[in-house]
Amino acid sequence: MSFTLRFGPVFEAWRELAAGVWLTLQLSASAMLIGLLVAVVCAWAKVFGPRWSGWIVNVYVEVIRNTPFLVQIFFIFFGLPAAGIRLSPDVAALAALVVNVGAYATEIIRAGIQSIHTGQIEAGLALGLRPVQVFRLVIIKPALRAVYPALTSQFILLMLSSSVVSAISADDLTSVANNIQSRTFTSFEVYIVVTLIYLVLSLAFAGAFRAIDRRVFSYPVAR
């Protein structure tokens, strides 16, 4: 069977593709930021918080890490309305991504925090820093630095798994691709283009993460 690639209909739909890229970018970047905050708070609760808070975080992390993302997003979009919480597709998608990446990042950051030597924390306290300052300057910054590669690859994974949000009719890049291919029957061509776009997005995020790494974490450490 001969097969001719037709890219025309795909490029004609560039406006839709651009809108899809924009939503994917917005969802991913927001979910990374909010998810990071969630994870730092949860990791704090797990390591330094009272015992009950550690338990709550454990339940959250284990439930999220041991269930499929698709099920989580269905639960938020289709299940929560039964409890009177009706979220639009975009908000439900963001909520699901934050909840999901928050759980994975919690464990990564916990590992980072536990890699900080007790002596370093005691040194911070001995210097007269307040506990909040100790957490911010002596614990979390070096902790994030230690787990930075693991954290950023988790974030890129988040960007890629955001393709699942098309299942609840959020119009991200994958959803747009599905719409285009169903209209024009150019499935192979659309997915080639979209795969390349995802690749470029991943590389762009990786580049941004390296830039942040150089700016924020480029202080010397004694070994």
Binding site: F78, A167, S169, S175, N178
Partner: peptide, 13 residues
């Protein structure tokens, strides 16, 4: 128009 992957999801919506 909200497009879902299948009829089951549209009905669920």
């Amino acid at each position: 128009i909200r497009r879902f992957d299948d009829d089951a999801s549209a009905v669920q919506a």
